[in-house]
């Protein structure tokens, strides 16, 4: 861990999809045990940033990345970096709840099983702990072997959180995790996130500015692939330094 508590450092990051430059020289860092919100209009590069951190962008053809990203002082794009190992340390939650069409138990233990964990006691314990941390244990403890697709959208998303937590990542990237959910489910997930902050670092991409202001410690505002402003959430929302930021959070565009 570096001295200033930075878990992820991003240095002059450019990402190109073919000719299109999706991120134009981004430099920022994400601190440990904080929630960092990334806001900005559609197509500004928020999701690209997340997918670049866990190298899920590798799956896209024609993608070029320059600059450096370090997670816990390991260079993510170093030639000897194992993307599979990286993704075990950097969990991700998607916009659409995407539990596998298996039982709740199989969903939560998936990450451990692919790492070779077979001990039933370890798996059982991980299921209970992760589901409790994701605040859904009480709702599903009696039907762990039911298909996860039978749950409501909000429950499914919390199963996905539990599935990520079971692998004990250092960081959790969340890509608009509540945009497909109703307000009550969103609220539950937000509360869960605030609790998770004690043990994990969270980066959340969101289009909901109230959400960003409610839960995040720091906020980054992106526009057209550039990091416009980044600082304490309170400062960003109360006294933004840049005109674009002010325009965006006051709803004048985007």
């Amino acid at each position: 861990m570096s001295k200033d508590n930075n878990l992820i450092t991003v240095q002059d990051l450019h990402v190109y999809y073919g000719q299109l430059e999706a991120l134009k020289g981004v430099t920022m860092n994400f601190k440990k045990n904080e929630i960092t919100a990334v806001i900005g209009p559609s197509g500004c590069g928020k999701s690209t940033l997340l997918k670049t951190i866990n190298r899920l962008n590798d799956l896209v053809a024609n993608v070029t990345v320059t600059g450096t990203i370090k997670v816990d002082d390991q260079n993510v794009y170093a030639p000897n970096m194992d993307a599979v190992e990286l993704r075990k340390q950097v969990g991700m939650l998607f916009q659409q709840p995407n539990p596998f069409p298996f039982s709740i138990y199989d969903n939560v233990t998936y990450g451990l099983r692919i790492s070779g964990e077979k001990n039933k006691t370890v798996l059982d314990e991980a299921v209970e702990k992760s589901l409790q941390a994701a605040a859904i244990w009480d709702e599903v403890k009696d039907r762990l072997h039911d298909n996860a697709l039978g749950l409501s959208g909000g429950q499914q998303q919390r199963i996905c959180i539990a599935r990520v937590l079971a692998t004990k990542p250092k960081v959790i990237l969340m890509d608009e995790p509540t945009s497909a959910l109703d307000p009550i489910s969103s609220d539950k997930i937000e509360r869960t996130m605030l609790k998770l902050k004690e043990d994990y670092s969270i980066v959340i991409v969101t289009r909901n500015m109230q959400q960003a202001s409610r839960i995040s410690d720091r906020t980054a505002f992106f526009l057209a692939g550039e990091l416009i402003e980044f600082g304490e959430t309170r400062d960003i929302f109360m006294q933004p330094q840049k005109k674009e930021t002010e325009d965006y959070i006051s709803g004048r565009f985007g």
Binding site: V84, N98, F102
Partner: peptide
């Protein structure tokens, strides 16, 4: 099989092969 199952599996640190036989084929 929806694409997002594959993404979820890879994001959890599964290899491509694990994704194929533990998620895609099973689903």
């Amino acid at each position: 099989v929806p694409r997002n199952y594959r993404e979820a599996s890879l994001a959890l640190g599964a290899t491509r092969w694990q994704t194929i036989y533990k998620v895609v084929l099973r689903a």
